[in-house]
Structures are given as structure tokens and as C-alpha cells.
Design a protein around this nucleic acid. Sequence first.
DNA 1: TTTATTTACTTAATCGATTACGTAAACTGG
DNA 2: CCAGTTTACGTAATCGATTAAGTAAATAAA
Lengths: 331, 331
Amino acid sequence: MLAKQLNLSTAAVSKALRDSHEISPTTKQRVLDLAAILNYIPHPYAGSLREKKSRTIAVVIPEVADSFFSLALNGIEAVAIEKGYHALIYLTHENQEREREILKDLESGRVDGVIMSVAMKTNTFEHIRLLHQAVPLVFFDRVCEEINTAKITTNDYECGYLATKHLIEAGCKKIVLLSVSESLSISSRRMQGYKQALLDHQMDETLCRVIDYNEDLTMNYDLLIELLKSKDRPDGIVATVSKMTTEIYLACMERGLNIPNDIKVVCFSNDSNAPIFNPSLTTITQPAFEMGKLAATILFKALKRNSMVLSDESAVIPSDLLIRASTAGLL
Amino acid sequence: MLAKQLNLSTAAVSKALRDSHEISPTTKQRVLDLAAILNYIPHPYAGSLREKKSRTIAVVIPEVADSFFSLALNGIEAVAIEKGYHALIYLTHENQEREREILKDLESGRVDGVIMSVAMKTNTFEHIRLLHQAVPLVFFDRVCEEINTAKITTNDYECGYLATKHLIEAGCKKIVLLSVSESLSISSRRMQGYKQALLDHQMDETLCRVIDYNEDLTMNYDLLIELLKSKDRPDGIVATVSKMTTEIYLACMERGLNIPNDIKVVCFSNDSNAPIFNPSLTTITQPAFEMGKLAATILFKALKRNSMVLSDESAVIPSDLLIRASTAGLL
DNA sequence: TTTATTTACTTAATCGATTACGTAAACTGG
DNA sequence: CCAGTTTACGTAATCGATTAAGTAAATAAA
């Protein structure tokens, strides 16, 4: 290294920089001074290789242009920086194949741990299982039930129930659920809550309609238009996916339906602009930032004690129902 | 390595996996087969160390919970994945000190290149200059003029001009600019456009009021309320920072001012929900995804030809003025 | 004074993959 | 049939930092 302008061994320099007792104060100072002048920074991968620790984690999420995931990423990054870790970001774009390629790479030892939220299209789990064998793994929000590790979720069942109950109490008789592929843990839990609420209030469960979220948003719009045209059109909508919001509002507008007078709407959403929508939107708002923070905290705790065992560290952080104008009044 | 179950040297295995002509087809197949069975993946940091290439870049941005930056990150990640690179994410939270610590670390050789958008609070550039000496650097959106490297921007001056002209043509007489610290390149350009538009239309430039964006959003709200209370309250607002939108709408509502009848509003924003705001929001929408993609493309091109020289690769991608209800009618 | 201990280093192994170089054995050409 | 070449590997250096183990010199203890 450059610090051999001091006529020292690399070993001595390394020890000096790490403040070892084996090095004399005079020498330490000389090393420190030159290091400052030369702006010397140890190469991280050299140490990583030897220590078998990269001080890096991976965050694997479906999207980042999404309030929930960007807030969660924010929480994860905050903890990572604080703990001196680095965060690699990977986006699956809801695509299982992409997810598999990413996880495959992460088995290499590139990262010490992985925090992930599974893609919508994911319906087999072998790739996740393989990763889990190689590196500590924490799920958040969209978890994989089949894999025994820490899972940070929110109270999806209760929220599905609560959102539906809220619409029922507002007088809605025909409530549809807009959801995504049922293979997703959160979707099925939210749907269970929805169904149970209908059941508990003697309402027709057969109305339950699942519109599978499509990446092509115009398709969702078209499906919504169809739905609103049908002769028993819904008078209440529970959308478990926030990306549907714009299309719901626009479709209602197109069909001349007033929210909340003709139809009431609740969305699972973390959009901070919900209060200024037309009308302001009643939301189930998830603790996205906190979920990210907790997922990261749990992961780093496990890394510290050098354990792959994370099974007992699961946690549920409740969401809030924020009632606004889109569900106001009584039908 | 484990592949010495084959009675081969590591060298032979390495060559086999890289399909070297020095290895016989039979041996290659044996290696490939066992590698598949053992799910062998080369350790990335070993190669990185030797090749002095990490195939990793860093993305340093102020925030991720922001439509513009999350879209840009999306664009960057898309190109990174395609090129076989990995992306580390760092958030400065608009804080110069944090930015400096992050950039300091990135001088270590951890990454082959950096894509960044500078923090609002950044007013000295030594830390950026130091990074620039160590590793190829591309700026996007919020660039540092003082540093000679590739810069991906949008036509901020024209947009400031256009937004203001649009309000003038809608009959606004007292247009304020809500901005952030003037040290920021984009802010000052947008402001220049704003001022020039006022000048070109013989309007009073002294009205120009810069409300410095504050992380504590309630402070922005309070400042806005004050502004709207003042005896020559504005009848037009150009907000160069999208995070102000909610507060602008809420403050107007609180003061009983109707948008667009009493006051018209244009925001620089990438929020896809702008069409369903109350009223729908006229925006200057930046090509966030494209800017991220281009920044990454230019960086990888430079990395490929192994050059630190990126000075001539700057580009400007224009934004769009999307006219909606918040500036409708004539005052 | 002699041995034991402490101080302040250096040497060399290590992490894992890559590659320049070395080398047996097989093969080819004259 | 022997020099020259090709084939198919193995050996060892390398990337950069860390650390166990080794060592010379100074110091302390007996």
C-alpha cells in the first residue's frame, strides 16, 4: 500500500489504523497523519473477503415508484446507515423470473442478509427457499408463509374486515373487492377479512369480485368501467392495491358516479396526498416506514449474533383506517 | 473450493466455468455438472478485488419517498440490471453532512461509479470534488455546476418560464414562487425562468417570494397561511418543489380560497395522482424515469471504455406542462 | 547477570477467484 | 525418430486488508 512511504509493513499500518496496542503512539500518529493526507480508505472488499462479512444487505421489492415501498425502503436505509451497513436495491417489477434471477445472484455471498417483499406473480418458492438456506432473510408485507423466518406484516385480515365494515356501516349494499393474485399472502388475508365482514353482516358474499391488478393500468380502467356499467354495479369499493386509485376515481367520473354519494371508496394506500384527492380518500394506511425499520432492525440483530435463525422474530404492526370524504354520508 | 471433489486445481475449475479453450470438453462438462449440483456461484468480491471492478454503482439521492426520485431510481435500476451491475442506494435526506459521509465512503473503491442528485443543504463542494477524483460520476437533476462531468437535467429555465407565463396568461397578477435554497442549481434556473417571464410581461418582480422548503412540513404550511393572509396575497403560485403540494391545497382550503377561481396553482410534480386532486393539478412533469435511465446509460458507457472522462456527455431532456383544472379559467 | 516479559514491530497465511507462466504428455511434421 | 507444437492441465502470484505467529530489542524481575 501507499502507506509504505513510512517504511512500515502493511500489517503495522493496518494495526495502527485499527488502534492496536501493538503499535507505539508515535508510529500510530505518523500513520494517521499520512492516511489523512493521502485520504486513505481501506478497500472494503479486501476485508469482506477475509471476514466473510460484506456489511451489505439486499432489499428486494416489487417496485420503488410506490408510496408504500419507497417509505419502507426509506426505513430500511435509515437503519442500515446507522448500523454502518450498505443496501443494494433490486426491483422485481412483480415478475417471478426476475425475482429468481436476483435471488440466485444473492446466494453468492454478496450480501450478509436480504429483506424482501415477494412479487405478485410469484407462485413457486424454490428460489426463495434456496436463498434462505444461503443467507438470513426477513420478509416484510408480502411474506412467503412456506418459509420459516422473520416476517414483518401489518394486520391485513383486520384491515380487510375494518374497511368492509366501514362501508357496510355507511350503507353500502354491494361491495366489491379489488385485489391482486390470490397467491399473495396479504391479498388473501385482506380478502378473508372482507369476506368475514360480509358474512357477519348477512351480506351477499357472491358479489365479491376480484379484479386482478394488471401492470397495464388502462386494462384496470377498462375492467372498472365494465364493472360500473353492469346492472348491479357496486356501491362500495375496497381496493387492496393503491395503484388502482387513479383508475377508480377516473372510471367513476367517466360513468358519472359521484364519490361518495353514488359509490364509496376505501383504498389501501400510503399516498400522502390522499387528503387532497377529489374527494379526499379514506385509506387504510400501513406503517410502511416502521415496517422497513423493524425488518432491518431484526435482520441486523440476527447478523450481530451471527445467527440464521430468525423464526421467532416476526411482528405485526397495525395499520390505520383514516376516514375521509370518499366514504362520507350514508347511502 | 468445493469443486476439488473433482481432483482438479482451482485454476482448472475457474477456467472451465469461464469456458476457456485450455480445458477439454470432457472436463468442462464434469465441472459444469458438479457446479450445477452444488449450486456453485463464484464469490463476487474475490473477482472484484483482483479485477479492481466491483460491477456495482452507487445512487445517492435526497429522498426515495418522492415520485421524482423513485421514478429516477427505477430507471437507473432498470439499466443496471440489464448491464449486469448492482446498485447501492444512499439517501442524504437533503443533509450536506450526511452526503459528505456517504461520498467519503464511496471513495473506497466500493463502487465503479456514482449517480447522484445533490442535497438541498449542500453549499460547499469539496466532498463532491474528492469523490469525482476517485470515481466516475454522473449528476442528474440537481447538478453541481462546479464539477466537470456528465449532467442529466431537464429544461428548468424554460419550465420556470413556461409555468409563470401560463399563470400570467390565465390572468394572474401576483405570482409567487415557492422554491428551495437558491444554492441548488435547479432552483436558481427555475427562478430565473420565473423572473424572466415576469419581466417579459411587465410584471412586478418584487413580488417574488421564496419560501424555503422545510423538512418539517407544518412549517411550510404555516408560512403559506401567512402568505395567503397578507394584504396583497398572491393569485398565482408556482411551486418548484412537489412536496409543497398538499400544504398549498390545504392552506388554500383553510383560508377559504378556491383553486382556480381565487388563486391558480402550478407545481413541478411527478405525482401520477395529480389528475384526481381537488382540483386536478396543473404540473410541470419531469421525465424522471428517462433521466435515471440516461444517467445510468452514460455512466455504464464510460465504465465500458474505462474512462473517467464524462464531460461531454451531458444531456437535457425536456419536461412537459400538463394543464389541468388548478389553472383553469381566467382571473 | 541471567532469565522473563513486554514492546513494537515483521513475516506469512488467509479470504476466493483469476491468470501469467510452467510443464508433462500427446501429437505432428520432416 | 526427434524437434516442435499443441493440449490440458497445475503452480504460484495477485488483488488489499487482516491477523496469527514469529522475532529482535528493550525493559523488568530474580
